[in-house]
Design a protein around this nucleic acid. Structure first.
Length: 564
RNA sequence: UGGCCCAUGGUGUAACGGUAGCACAGCAGAUUUUGGUUCUGUUUGUCAGGGUUCGAAUCCUUGUGGGCCAACCA
């Protein structure tokens, strides 16, 4: 329920990023009356958190300024693109919470592009080149040495038109020739040294089938596609900045709608890699279990890990937009999901590494159903009851025979509160022949029951627990960062930096009875442990949980300090 | 040794010639039946030199450092 006295979040006072400034200026001056953006992935892999930033930017800008945003697949290279990727991309965009104004494909424009190529040829601005790739590379010179023209550069437009048509008709094998724009072989910008427009590929395209055997290059397709869609602000990452003069040259020569390109710095995250090539390697070489492995920075991986769309959108907002190279601390991402889930996730009891506890003064066979809150941050989440009995399980970490200083949990002679139940005092331990503790013995304080505590006792620690007779089992997958170094991409071999302990599977964790009814995608906070999400691998009666992120753990820090 | 882009605490990001702020992380404390949450406090910064100006993170200039660019990839 929104309070009306609260001003609508003061967006006006919030600082604008450089793209917002450009847009507001364009709107103010009347250069555009509305804006049109697009998110243009190539369907050759799964989307990752870096794409999420771009999606949030493009759709977010359109939303903010009352414009529209298209999803356009940049499908100009049939040999690396697949329908599987097309489908996953749309699903990810929608999951993030955005609906494209239109779902379009660069391949929709192949006919138009072909016609426009002929226009350039007629203007003497494009020619068919039969040189080998090596020859062309050599003729391009280097950044400090101008390129040199070859014989094909002088072919007449008429001849080029014929040649280009023959290319299109499939009269030449792959790689036999290319269509090049005739611009400036001496340009200090290598992209202007007669760039390729078309290459021959007798390949099946996932949408156009076998209609074409020539396919446009990125530079020849992208700006024209933007123009066709009347994209006002074509936002891309920094590495495309040197392409901008070419982007503008094509549009100018064709005299078509002048879309403008703007570049921003792509997102990098600590302890992971972001390039599609590297992610593909992780998948293909079995370092992870697929694109949606919860350790992957892919959107599908984050989803399976338990990240919510809201948390990712918030993250994208918080990282900001600028032109400076950056590497965002993954702790910001973790902050965003904790912030979101703290508000929304229902609390449940789970014991990952069980230790038996026997309450020696509690009647055998008796069971009490005790009330506990589903979410202390949200009164509307209500309460639930959990069974309490003589034999319990607690977390191994919550008992120590010889506790270090500042240890608030249980130890011989010490007292803790069992969350939402009673205060117990440890009276001793049971050990096996090897000296291993098999049970913690306690006596409980009957008048310390939560909600009606008249004991007057104050304890420092509160721990979670499960009634042994009522506990159910579940598989719990504990994930840690995939890499051991902050910036694996800068390593000689990024795969050597892989964290060998990025996944720990606990196949017999204990959970409270209610938790067996969960559905894949459900989020919970396991009290005192962290946020967990039900995995699709769950089977009836045997749920599987992924740890999204731990709770902040100041004791772990303190213990580490003491240890070192 | 060509062109383009960039440079603000540990990490990001504001300040649009006029008090260097915010967030995350860190540290310290208060509250707490989650060592969670919440609250309070706090450490740390304008790459360097020159110039313009009453005044420069901001404008100019030189340097330094980083990134990108020559694929029949996008």
């Amino acid at each position: 329920m929104a309070t009306n006295t609260e001003p609508i979040r003061d967006e006006a006072k919030e600082a604008l990023n450089f793209l917002e400034e450009i847009i507001e200026e364009d709107l103010r001056t009347g250069r555009h009356s509305t804006i049109q953006t697009r998110f243009p992935p190539e369907p050759n892999g799964y989307l990752h958190i870096g794409h999420a930033k771009s999606i949030c930017l493009n759709f977010g800008l359109a939303e903010k300024y009352g414009g529209k945003c298209n999803l356009r697949y940049d499908d100009t290279n049939p040999t690396s693109e697949e329908q599987e990727y097309v489908d996953s991309i749309l699903a990810d965009v929608r999951w993030l919470g955005f609906e494209p104004a239109q779902v379009l494909y660069a391949s929709d424009y192949f006919d138009q592009l072909y016609e426009w190529a002929k226009v350039l040829i007629q203007k003497g601005l494009a020619y068919v080149d039969f040189s080998t790739p090596e020859e062309i590379a050599a003729q391009k010179g280097s950044p400090t040495v101008p390129g040199t023209p070859n014989q094909y550069r002088n072919t007449s437009p008429e001849e080029n038109l014929t040649l280009f048509e023959r290319m299109k008709n499939g009269e030449f094998p792959d790689g036999h020739c290319v269509l090049r724009a005739k611009i400036d072989l001496a340009s200090p910008n290598m992209h202007l040294r007669d760039p390729y427009m078309y290459r021959i590929k007798h390949a099946h395209h996932h949408r156009t089938g076998d209609k074409w055997c020539i396919y446009p290059m990125y530079d020849w397709a992208h700006g024209q596609s933007d123009s066709i869609e009347r994209i006002t602000h074509s936002i891309c990452t920094l590495e495309f900045a040197p392409h901008r003069p070419l982007y503008e040259w094509f549009i100018e020569q064709l005299g078509i709608f002048p879309s403008r390109q703007y570049e921003f710095a792509r997102l990098n995250l600590t302890y992971t890699v972001m390039s599609k090539r590297k992610l593909l390697q992780l998948v293909q070489e079995g370092y992870v279990n697929g694109w949606d492995d919860p350790r992957m920075p892919t959107i599908s991986g984050l989803r399976r890990r338990g990240y919510t769309p809201e948390s990712i959108r918030e993250f994208a907002h918080r990282v900001g937009v600028a032109k400076r190279e950056n590497i965002i601390d993954v702790s910001l991402l973790e902050f965003c999901i904790r912030e979101d889930l703290n508000r929304r996730a229902l609390r449940r009891f789970a014991v990952l590494r069980p230790l038996r506890m026997v309450i020696t003064n509690y009647p055998e066979g008796e069971v009490e159903w005790l009330e506990t809150e589903n979410n202390p941050e949200d009164r509307n989440a209500g309460n639930r009851t959990v069974p309490f009995s003589r034999e319990l399980y607690i977390e191994q970490d919550d008992f120590l025979e010889n506790p270090p200083p500042k240890y608030f949990r249980l130890y011989p002679g010490g007292m803790v509160r069992l969350k939402s139940a009673y205060i117990v005092e440890c009276t001793g331990v049971e050990k096996d022949d090897h000296g291993q503790i098999t049970a913690v013995l306690c006596r409980y304080i009957p008048e310390s029951r939560s909600g009606s505590d008249t004991s007057g006792l104050k304890v420092k620690g509160t721990i979670h627990w499960l009634s042994a007779a009522h506990a159910r089992t579940a598989e719990v997958r504990l994930y840690d960062r995939l890499f051991q170094v902050e910036d694996p991409a800068s390593e000689e071999d990024f795969k050597k930096a892989i964290n060998p302990n990025s996944l720990e599977v606990i196949s017999n964790a204990l959970i409270e009875p209610m938790l067996t009814e969960t559905q894949p995608g459900d989020h919970f906070q396991f009290t005192r442990l962290g946020y967990f999400c039900t995995d699709p691998d769950s089977a009836p009666g045997k749920p599987v949980f992924n740890r999204t992120v731990t709770l902040k753990d100041t004791w772990a820090k303190e213990a580490k300090k003491q240890g070192s």
